[in-house]
Amino acid sequence: MGDFLHSFFDIHQILHVLPTLLGEGLRNTLIIASLSLLLGLTAGLLLSMLLIATRWWLRAPARIYVDIFRGLPAIVTVSIIGIGLPSADIRPFGESPMGYAILAIGLINAAYIAEIFRSGIQSVPVGQMEAGRSLGMSHLTTLMLIVVPQGIRNVLPALANQFIIAVKESSLVYLLGLAVGERELYFIAQQAQAVSYNSSSFVAAGLVYIAFTVPLTHLVNRFDRRMREGKRPTVADEPVGKEPLTPVGAGMEAGA
């Protein structure tokens, strides 16, 4: 029992590594997570527009992208981009692995976020598109001003969730090896463990992840509940008439 406590909860080891975790590690973890989320949001929104397009040749490439990046284990994607690109002499971010990590995790995020946006946009009743079109607004204008804003509102909790996932996935950068100063939580813990042969540094890193992700999860859940309860259903929220709930992009016959 004493061994167990010593291996995982050695207080000296934890206190030793904690300042670096909080100072350097947490900052870099959040940088990787935020920037990759930003990339994911931008690319994901674009991809979601393509996913709901009426024309198959717009839909197909987006669908293939999403399937590939959701189908690959994150560690494979990070390796292909972070190790593969530089060794093939493609070095858009120079030698530092940070940029490659953000790109890789951002591209993965984009695939998931595209699906989140797509389902959000498609959950908006077709009547909204029809109302916009009947006022003479174009398909694109109605999509951007009427449908997408409502769709995004529907999926805010899912997006926040994606941020939590990005925080955890940022740990995969350790694969690429990081210089002092750009190390994130997991890498610091791993280096400390390699020196001390004591797993308490992993536990310390875990505690920092948890201290961040668990409150965030609960905040998201609370926000989600508030949105559901606060938003009283109105008749206008129901899908219109007998029309099946077709994708908004393909929903109305009157394209053009």
Binding site: G127, Q128, A131, S134, L135, G136, M137, P149
Partner: peptide
């Protein structure tokens, strides 16, 4: 020009279809 045509024809729906946001 469908949009121009539609902008001159008002339509009122059974379920209003106001923009809730």
């Amino acid at each position: 020009d469908l949009n121009a045509v539609r902008s001159r024809i008002g339509m009122v729906f059974q379920h209003f279809n106001l923009f809730p946001h």
